[in-house]
């Protein structure tokens, strides 16, 4: 696991639900066929109402029309990110589009578990509403060893809440890797 993630910020509001992250009509694509998987990148965050997409200005799509990947790798959001359905397609779509980490005030439980146990994106929490100060397109640097986020564009550093209990699963890269390391499941290697 890299300890520093650097990339551009994509800023969202509160209560971003899984229908906004990946609208239900796109759930029909295969999660394993490489050609179909690309569609999850194409439609990631496509359900966010346009005036809420890419704050503070809005009207900035996460993935440009005709593209399959996003130029933004760190998502900044308010409270209750990922509420709604249990669909793992949601963190998966964010990963396929190129997101590496999310920094939100809080998460819905199922989404949070999915991010961690599936090893898709790393969900950090922050006590401050960072989506009020960070602007879409700002260059950010996330230091996972020290739990800090630096806004290189605005030259400000913020403290993040440590990952706590789940840091071992995040470091292992998901629940299966963690379980194998800790002898919680029989090794499946031939």
């Amino acid at each position: 696991m890299d300890t520093i993630i650097q990339g551009k910020a994509y800023v969202l509001g509160k209560n971003i639900d899984t229908d906004q992250i990946i609208p239900a009509e796109h759930l029909v694509y295969s999660l394993s066929d490489p050609e179909e998987v690309k569609m999850y990148g194409k439609y990631a965050l496509s359900g966010v109402p346009i005036d809420q997409a890419g704050l503070p200005e809005g009207k900035i799509p996460f993935v440009e029309e005709g593209e399959f990947a996003s130029p933004y790798s760190i998502i900044i959001a308010g409270p209750n990110f990922g509420c709604g359905s249990s669909r793992e397609h949601a963190p998966f779509a964010l990963k396929v589009a190129g997101a590496k980490a999310i920094i939100a005030e809080s998460y819905a439980r199922i989404f949070y578990r999915n991010c961690v146990d599936g090893g898709f994106v790393i969900p950090f929490e922050t006590a401050q509403p960072l989506n009020k100060s960070i602007m879409t397109g700002d260059e950010l640097s996330l230091d996972m060893e020290n739990n800090t986020l630096t806004n290189l564009t605005q030259n400000i550093t913020y403290e993040l809440r440590p990952l706590g209990d789940v840091v071992n699963i995040v470091q292992a890269g998901g629940i299966f890797e963690y379980a194998r390391k800790n002898d919680l499941m029989a090794s499946t290697e031939a």
Partner: peptide
């Protein structure tokens, strides 16, 4: 739960 957790349960 999500699919990964469900797959983990299926096996264990």
């Amino acid at each position: 739960i999500g699919n990964t957790d469900a797959a983990f349960i299926l096996g264990t």
